[in-house]
Design a protein around this nucleic acid. Sequence first.
DNA 1: AAAATTGTTTCCCAAATGCGAACAGCTATA
DNA 2: TATAGCTGTTCGCATTTGGGAAACAATTTT
Lengths: 266, 266
Amino acid sequence: MAQDQHRSARTLETVARACDVIDTLDALGGAGVTEVATELDIAKSSAHAYLNTLREKRFVVKKGHQYHLSLEFLYLGKSVRHRHVLFAHGKSVVDQLASESGEYVHLMAEQHGLERNVYKVAGENAVGDTYHTAKERKTDFLHFTSTGKAVLAHLPESRVRDIVDTHGLLQKTENTITDLETLFEELETVRNRGYAVNDEEEVKGIRAVGAPIRNANGTVLGAISVSGPSSRFTGEYLHKEVPHMVKEAANVTEASINMSDASQSL
Amino acid sequence: MAQDQHRSARTLETVARACDVIDTLDALGGAGVTEVATELDIAKSSAHAYLNTLREKRFVVKKGHQYHLSLEFLYLGKSVRHRHVLFAHGKSVVDQLASESGEYVHLMAEQHGLERNVYKVAGENAVGDTYHTAKERKTDFLHFTSTGKAVLAHLPESRVRDIVDTHGLLQKTENTITDLETLFEELETVRNRGYAVNDEEEVKGIRAVGAPIRNANGTVLGAISVSGPSSRFTGEYLHKEVPHMVKEAANVTEASINMSDASQSL
DNA sequence: AAAATTGTTTCCCAAATGCGAACAGCTATA
DNA sequence: TATAGCTGTTCGCATTTGGGAAACAATTTT
């Protein structure tokens, strides 16, 4: 059933289903046994067993007859973030960039071919992140964001093809790049000028500039972006000032990472 | 094997083990197959299967030969927090209390008999939360914090006994309450005066004042606390001013919750 | 008061998992 | 450079475990 493209390593159905239960509880914001059972198309007794086990393991809490994800996830999330390389070396840089630019700043990592924000800060005049505060997930593709394109530009071509095969090229606005040919051209441009521009490709009225963060081997780890209203993001500001700030911030982060890498690898 | 005190509902060992894998990855901050296998005392091939499944489900990422928890947990954590009643109604109150008092303010919920912080803010003169930024978990018991005691004071006695049976009364400092008798007396005091005091019971040099948050039924949902250095937390400040602020904040939160409950239950 | 929910428990068989062992790939060591 | 000792990965088989149907309990609705 779960046979993937490459010869699939073994997967445990029970574990996979437990993950589905977690996803379902998140999607529904809590649910009862029957609800979970119908949602995942399994027997009530099975759903009950899954929920009960997750509860005993403290990943789920039960309020009355409703099951919810527990605050354990908040702790795990914090833990993951604090240990992440980009957070460790990028947080202060991002904070500074936000106060310097006054705009919204994102620190992003790629995982499983998707965009994952490690950290984000709103500068004083920040605009435009109210979209996706709640539902930020599932549609976090790489091809319509500045950070995403900055990352894609520095991944091996084969990897980019894999990612597009897996996730497709969803159209979010009329500016979204929706075919592979155009995407590769765009990535070429990104590589040449050293930064990526999101020209209302995800949300109308919002532009962004993103620069990649790479380690000493040239492997891309993520990206930093500055975003704001299209009205403000034009001309010199969009094509000179912002790129300059963003690239600088990315470079500083890279330097910090490479220094600690160098000291560790001895 | 996993027969618990009360007649145990069914649990799935595969799911339980998957949870253990997640806990292990968190505890070790990433690990290899062999490491996980020895840690959990299972076969290498099994550990591999678990890790592979969690990776396919995007809860785990693989960097070289190291497996780490993915940023998915960061998203789930945020989602859980944003949906939590206490956060929804308490965040603004806590923010205000922090700027008003200048101290550290915690918004806490009880889950599985443990202390779980939903939100916390440092006021301008805040001191003393650097302990447990990283390793805050596992030892988060209720009996040595102001929030924990505030909550315990309003749980049914039987529930308190259950919790103590399960988690014990770990001694953290010389002031920690370590026997049930004394604990019940303390909880009585807390109930009578309406707030709990943590007198260096968790960490030497830190005192705190906590007040419970209860819904219209009288069920306790959590607590709010203000904490700071013992040098500053004395006399009138400790026994009048801070309790007044904390109780006020808790009451405002309660009111907000009860209003939305009332409107929903019709 | 009856009917329709939902959650919980039981039991058995098919199926999924755990394990051991073999294999592959890499690193350190002689 | 060869060898030993690590890793991670794959395979096949015996066995345990989880899935499901149905009965039961506990509410809620009609």
